[in-house]
Design a protein around this nucleic acid. Structure first.
Lengths: 216, 216
DNA sequence: CCCATATGGATAGTGGAGCTATCCAATAGC
DNA sequence: GCTATTGGATAGCTCCACTATCCATATGGG
């Protein structure tokens, strides 16, 4: 299939596809002549994934490139590929180390991780802290700077919920046969279930707020 | 306190504070002379909230203005103010109605909402669907376009987790005395717990992935 | 009282992200 | 042969969140 057809079948403009090709999000097609290239179903599939990551998952183009690179890196096993892909996801500003709230937040995060018995994510020892850990610390610091409580105790219900969610996630992933499929599934599900989760939470909050405060 | 002091105490540059004043995220200070204005602790607190929403919650400036406007609109009760504020939060692209996947996604979302017995969020009848509902439909459509399963059945564990999270959220909110404080708390917690939740999920996924696939 | 300094306000400019429009030479297909 | 289309390169556009400059007006140390 040629560029125009790839564009028609994906609903993405040729200009944008060319942009993704330039940015390395999409492999170049097989060159047929000097002025023509051939794209296959794999390109279509990849293009749809790229669009989903960028438009639905709101991942920046640069991060998307890294995520996609990780999921086809043959040198790593499933766990490593998933880890590398997750590593590349956007994770907001790094904690501001000059702020005392950050240090307290770090302790809270560590305590939480300890309570749950997770071995990744701690600051002390072990592999360099995951970006998600910095993200957590930044958010806790912001909350406490505003005077909102978020001790390990307050966060625990959220962490337990996250744990159950992760189990569901990996259950979904294991429905797929080959490790390759599993890794793509893991990335797609990690990223695309984020809006699902956030929107469900907002709907659930509305419901709970209605239940408690409705009709005042 | 004058602009320079507000800047020093908040860690936000005077240029940025002026920008927020222009954009209506921060009330102008009390004018003392033609060239001086006086800012109080309320300004400092508001400024910290604005920074948290924008930097940690990654809310666009325009949305932040609407959110902040809602939380001090005296004409509404708690439930309404919280709803209006949540309404203004960013929610990604609207579902693409020309795509058949969208229609299927809408049915899935409706079925899920039915199963849980939520009365908001449905498409049929009742108040105009919450933006979060569109966000959910878009995400489900994107997933199914990629060939990933997300029937109501698959989503139910996520929705149950969201429900528990919403209960925790509102419990935290109810720690605050006045409705005004509660509304601010609700908005701050809705927005600032999003990164908390996402980062906890990523950490939990890493843990679960290590448990299942680690050391291959 | 004087004058360097600081202040608040207005306006224009910056840099990054994610496309988008234009141009071009080489071909495909009639 | 001739027109329309293709892939590729490049420059431009729009939006966003700031940021830098300018200016008239106070302020405060001497």
């Amino acid at each position: 299939m040629r560029l125009a057809e790839l564009s028609a079948r994906s609903g993405v403009s040729t200009a944008t596809i060319k942009y993704y090709l330039r940015e390395g999000l999409l492999h170049p097609g097989r060159r047929v002549t000097a002025t023509q290239a051939d794209y296959d179903e794999g390109h279509l599939r990849r293009l749809r994934l790229v669009r989903a990551l960028i438009q639905v998952g709101r991942i920046p183009v640069n991060s998307a490139r890294e995520v996609l690179a990780a999921l086809q890196d043959e040198r790593m096993d499933r766990h490593q590929r998933l880890g590398t892909a997750t590593w590349a996801l956007p994770h907001g500003p790094e904690p501001d180390e000059t702020d005392p709230a950050t240090e307290a937040a770090r302790r809270t995060a560590d305590e939480l991780v300890d309570r749950l018995g997770w071995c990744c994510g701690g600051t002390s020892g072990r592999p360099p802290a995951a970006p998600a850990h910095g993200m957590l610390v930044t958010a806790i610091a912001a909350l406490s700077r505003l005077g909102y409580p978020c001790a390990a105790e307050d966060l625990e219900p959220y962490a337990r919920a996250a744990q159950r969610i992760a189990v569901s996630d990996l259950d979904l992933v294991e429905r797929y046969g080959t490790p390759d499929e599993q890794v793509e599934a893991a990335v797609a599900l990690t990223v695309l279930y984020e809006p699902v989760l956030l929107s469900l939470r907002r709907l659930a909050e509305a419901e709970e707020s209605r239940r408690r405060f409705g009709g005042e």
